[in-house]
Computed example of a mutant assay.
Amino acid sequence: MIIVFTTFTLPKPITREEARRIFLSTAPKYRGVQGLFSKHYVLSQDGATAGGVYLWNSRSEAEAMYTESWRSFVREKYGTDPTVTYFDSPVVVDNVAQQVLTDE
C-alpha cells in the first residue's frame, strides 16, 4: 500500500468552514477511483496550507491520479501548485473496520 501526502500553500488563508465547502465540492471526484482506499482532506490550523492524505493500493494507481491534468485542477481551484510525496505503508490499523491490513 502507498500513502500519498499532497500539500499546497494557499495564496491567502481560509477558514475551516471555507475549506469544508471547497473540499465537499471536490469530494465526488475521488469516489470510485481505482485503487484509492481513502482520502482525508487536511487544513493547517492557521488555514494557510491545505492538502490530502491518500491511502492507495499501489504506487502505479496513485501515479495515475497525479497527472498534469490533476495539477492544473489544483492550480485552478486553489491558486497554487501542489506538492506530492509518496510513502510505503506496509501496515494499516483500521479501528473502524476493526482490522489490521498489510500489503501482502
Results as ranks from 00 to 15, higher is better:
81 D>Q: 11
79 G>S: 07
59 R>D: 04
50 A>Q: 11
44 S>K: 09
26 T>L: 12
19 A>L: 12
103 D>S: 15
94 D>S: 02
92 V>P: 04
21 R>Y: 08
46 D>T: 13
21 R>W: 03
5 F>P: 00
39 K>R: 15
92 V>G: 05
14 I>Y: 00
48 A>V: 13
13 P>T: 10
27 A>E: 12
96 V>G: 05
4 V>Y: 03
100 V>H: 03
35 G>Y: 06
11 P>L: 02
38 S>G: 14
33 V>M: 12
88 D>N: 13
19 A>V: 13
66 Y>E: 01
20 R>P: 00
82 P>M: 01
7 T>Y: 02
49 T>P: 08
50 A>K: 08
98 Q>W: 04
64 A>R: 08
5 F>H: 12
30 Y>K: 05
60 S>K: 15
51 G>V: 06
47 G>K: 14
82 P>K: 05
65 M>S: 12
3 I>R: 09
57 N>K: 15
53 V>R: 11
69 S>K: 03
7 T>A: 03
73 F>W: 05
104 E>G: 14
41 Y>R: 10
8 F>C: 10
5 F>G: 00
66 Y>M: 00
92 V>K: 11
60 S>D: 14
43 L>Y: 06
96 V>R: 06
22 I>F: 11
16 R>N: 11
95 N>M: 00
94 D>C: 06
37 F>L: 07
82 P>R: 04
39 K>N: 12
45 Q>F: 15
57 N>I: 14
40 H>I: 13
73 F>T: 05
39 K>E: 13
46 D>N: 15
31 R>F: 02
26 T>S: 07
71 R>G: 00
51 G>P: 04
78 Y>W: 09
100 V>K: 07
65 M>Y: 08
65 M>R: 10
12 K>N: 07
34 Q>K: 15
6 T>E: 05
104 E>N: 15
48 A>K: 15
4 V>T: 06
70 W>R: 09
74 V>H: 00
82 P>Q: 00
97 A>P: 01
45 Q>P: 15
11 P>V: 03
94 D>N: 10
101 L>Y: 14
36 L>W: 10
54 Y>L: 10
64 A>D: 12
39 K>C: 06
57 N>S: 15
9 T>R: 14
72 S>N: 04
44 S>C: 10
27 A>L: 12
104 E>L: 15
84 V>N: 01
13 P>D: 05
4 V>D: 02
69 S>N: 00
86 Y>S: 04
14 I>N: 00
88 D>V: 14
87 F>G: 01
38 S>K: 13
15 T>D: 07
4 V>A: 08
88 D>M: 11
10 L>M: 04
11 P>D: 01
97 A>K: 11
80 T>R: 06
74 V>L: 02
22 I>S: 05
60 S>P: 02
85 T>S: 11
3 I>F: 14
89 S>L: 13
36 L>C: 14
68 E>K: 11
88 D>H: 12
62 A>Y: 07
86 Y>Q: 07
9 T>D: 14
2 I>A: 05
9 T>M: 10
39 K>F: 12
96 V>D: 08
62 A>K: 05
